[in-house]
Design a binder for these strands. Structure first.
Length: 445
RNA sequence: GCCCCCAUCGUCCAGUGGCCUAGGACGCCGGCCUUUCACGCCGGUAACACGGGUUCGAAUCCCGUUGGGGGUGCCA
């Protein structure tokens, strides 16, 4: 029998990184074992039963490359089946109807205004063998009768979850540890239906710096936000795979297809993992550098289209050459424009920190600008020559090239950080424009 | 409160009784390279929460303590 796993998100309007990690681990298990990955939308709550919320979710899963084999099924479309199970339980006395004050009411069919509760057995212990956690058990005496059908005529999550897992013949329920304590109730429900138990694997939670479950309010948890900031899908899934799992050969940064080969759900750890943006950036930068130039240019397109310069000043040919100079310096696609914007902007940006650092606190800014302006006026317009000129001017005021080029760089590009300066000026900028920018900066001093 | 889970460098991962004077990665700190930044290279910092057992031997097994987290809805 082949394994059947499912990702069963509740549509909240966006894909949360924790959910993405759960989806990824389910997908990895399916792909690495030749199993089936089912997508099921848990929208029993009427509030969440909105198509546009679901389509966002699907789009992000597709972006991550997590393709599903079945579904998406919608729990909201299975209400009759859920009702049937509830009424069966009522008929057998395993559940009972109750009113708004939680008083038991006679009857064996669900009616408007009445909820149904599952009757918790007394004195039992419900246990299971979790793939990542081992043996886990709960005493039914610590649990209470729980609602399985709402008075508004809809099934509750646990009921729908149990019925759907059974009907869809799910063999492995791989999901977040926050759902661990709901397992005994589901098991009891499955037993009542005479359905087999799936094997559970509860993944450690993703936590923030305070070691609390990642929260929508305080933390950056939206996959879409990371995508928009210029993170690569391949970096995102690569990093997510590293939270709670590690490759046996210690090679952390690698393509998804290799992870599929190495992944085993039994190797997942139990301890919560901190979502470390610094490491994500490192993983992303590594994948970004590895992109072939053509592909980089194609994929960075949206950020270029969105750049702060006037569209008619942009020159694709210049940009293409600049890619050779800046691709290795970037951490995300979103970083790209600030490395090249000075070439396409009328005037360089005014970056306060850069100005402060070189023009105000730096030594001899005026002398360097005056000296280079004078020498640039009639020297050969070649990178090597420009470099020699700046080195010479620097020498005159006791600065090495590294320091001497700083004011010039800020005058021309607006920033202390950027591509190699002399090559860029010689190849892509007019002498007159460079002189204009030097003069412009000099006037501000 | 009650129930459940967790516990190796700041962080992620390795380690499943001897190969551990605990390994890799991110970060951080030095150095090299260098026209900035980055990359690359070299080096460094830094951990088995604590206390009892079991054993010839424990990061690895057991118990307890402490700490942290999750759950405890007619949300999922």
């Amino acid at each position: 029998m082949i394994d059947r796993v499912r990702f069963a998100p509740s549509p909240t309007g966006f894909l949360h990184v924790g959910s993405a990690r759960t989806a990824l681990f389910n997908w990895l298990h399916a792909r690495s074992t030749g199993g089936t990955f089912v997508l099921r939308v848990e929208d029993t709550d009427a509030e969440r039963n909105r198509p546009e919320l679901v389509s966002n979710l699907l789009a992000e899963l597709e972006w991550l490359g997590l393709d599903w084999d079945e579904g998406p099924y919608h729990q909201s479309e299975r209400r009759e089946r859920h009702r049937e199970v509830v009424e069966d339980l009522l008929g057998r006395g395993l559940a009972y109807l109750c009113d708004a004050d939680n008083r038991e009411v006679d009857g064996s069919s669900v009616t408007d205004g009445l909820a149904a509760r599952f009757r918790m057995p007394v004195g039992q212990r419900v246990g299971f063998d979790d793939i990542v956690r081992g043996e886990v058990s709960f005493a039914t005496d610590d649990l209470e009768d729980f609602v399985i059908w709402r008075s508004n005529g809809s099934p509750m999550f646990l009921l729908a979850n149990a019925v759907d897992d059974a009907d869809m013949r799910i063999t492995h329920a791989i999901r977040g540890e926050d759902l661990l304590s709901g397992v005994p109730k589901v098991l009891l429900l499955l037993d009542a239906m005479g359905a087999p138990h799936p094997t559970y694997a509860h993944l450690p939670l993703l936590v923030n710096e305070q070691r609390k479950k990642l929260s929508k309010r305080r933390d950056d948890v939206s996959i879409a936000d990371y995508r928009e900031r210029g993170y690569l899908a391949e970096a995102m899934v690569n990093y997510l795979a590293l939270l709670g799992w590690g490759p046996p050969d210690d090679v952390e940064i690698r393509p998804l297809h290799e992870i599929v080969e190495l992944f085993r759900i039994e190797d997942v750890n139990k301890a919560p993992a901190f979502f470390d943006l610094k490491k994500l950036e490192h993983v992303n930068a590594t994948h970004l550098r590895a992109l072939p130039k053509d592909e980089f240019i194609e994929r960075v397109g949206p950020w270029i289209d969105d750049a702060p310069w006037p569209a008619d000043r942009f020159d694709p040919a210049i940009f293409s050459t600049m890619v050779d100079l800046v691709q290795e310096k970037l951490r995300t696609f979103g970083d790209t424009t600030r490395f090249v914007d000075f070439l396409f902007l009328e005037d360089p940006v005014d970056d306060a920190d850069s100005w402060e650092k070189t023009m105000v606190k730096g030594r001899s800014a005026a002398e360097v600008l005056d000296g280079t302006a004078a020498a640039f006026a009639d020297c050969a317009w070649e990178a090597g020559v420009l470099k020699d000129v700046v080195a010479e001017v620097g020498e005159g005021v006791g600065l090495k090239l590294g320091k001497a080029q700083a004011p010039l760089r800020v005058a021309v590009t607006g920033r202390t950080v950027g591509p190699p300066l002399f090559e860029t000026m010689a190849d892509f900028m007019e002498r007159s424009e460079v002189l204009r920018r030097i003069a412009r900066a000099r006037a501000r001093l």
